[in-house]
Amino acid sequence: MTNEADPLLRLLEVEMPYGKYQGTPIADLPGNYLNWFAREGFPRGELGRLLALAHEIDHNGLKHLLEPLRRR
């Protein structure tokens, strides 16, 4: 399986391409920033899907699930 097929790995690989947190991996974006996107609307495409996934993980207190992937 390639990393492109694994959304959890993509959260660690893809960096925010613009804004205050430009260059920050999606997995490391703060919850309040993800909440803003949830209220205002996620962008289209992979970035939007990853931001929505990161929001769900953060909102449900599941960030610890990414730790084993970070150690790879």
Results as ranks from 00 to 15, higher is better:
47 L>D: 13
11 L>I: 13
8 L>E: 06
56 E>G: 07
6 D>L: 04
14 V>H: 06
56 E>P: 00
32 N>S: 04
18 Y>I: 05
17 P>T: 00
65 L>P: 02
52 A>W: 01
38 A>C: 05
48 G>A: 12
41 G>H: 12
55 H>F: 15
8 L>Q: 04
20 K>G: 06
71 R>A: 11
50 L>V: 01
37 F>Q: 09
43 P>M: 01
24 T>M: 14
12 L>C: 11
61 G>T: 00
20 K>L: 15
13 E>T: 12
38 A>H: 11
66 L>T: 03
1 M>W: 12
63 K>H: 15
60 N>L: 08
67 E>C: 01
7 P>K: 13
68 P>R: 10
10 R>A: 13
32 N>I: 00
64 H>A: 13
35 N>S: 12
26 I>N: 04
22 Q>W: 02
19 G>R: 05
43 P>N: 00
31 G>E: 15
17 P>K: 02
28 D>E: 14
51 L>I: 08
2 T>P: 12
21 Y>G: 08
56 E>D: 12
54 A>N: 04
34 L>C: 09
49 R>D: 14
3 N>C: 07
62 L>I: 03
7 P>Y: 11
39 R>Q: 15
65 L>M: 14
21 Y>W: 15
21 Y>A: 09
39 R>K: 15
47 L>F: 13
58 D>V: 00
31 G>D: 13
55 H>T: 09
48 G>F: 14
21 Y>Q: 14
9 L>D: 05
34 L>D: 08
36 W>H: 04
3 N>R: 13
35 N>T: 06
26 I>A: 02
26 I>H: 11
19 G>S: 12
32 N>M: 00
45 G>L: 01
67 E>A: 09
70 R>T: 03
37 F>L: 03
24 T>G: 02
37 F>M: 07
13 E>P: 04
68 P>N: 07
8 L>R: 10
19 G>E: 08
31 G>K: 13
5 A>I: 05
63 K>Y: 05
30 P>N: 02
27 A>P: 02
63 K>G: 12
22 Q>G: 06
31 G>V: 03
55 H>W: 15
5 A>C: 03
27 A>T: 00
65 L>W: 10
42 F>C: 03
36 W>L: 06
55 H>E: 15
65 L>E: 07
21 Y>F: 15
67 E>I: 07
11 L>Y: 10
1 M>I: 15
14 V>A: 07
10 R>C: 13
63 K>L: 15
53 L>C: 03
15 E>P: 06
1 M>T: 15
10 R>S: 10
39 R>I: 14
22 Q>D: 09
51 L>N: 10
48 G>I: 11
15 E>M: 07
30 P>R: 05
41 G>N: 13
1 M>D: 11
26 I>P: 07
12 L>R: 12
22 Q>R: 15
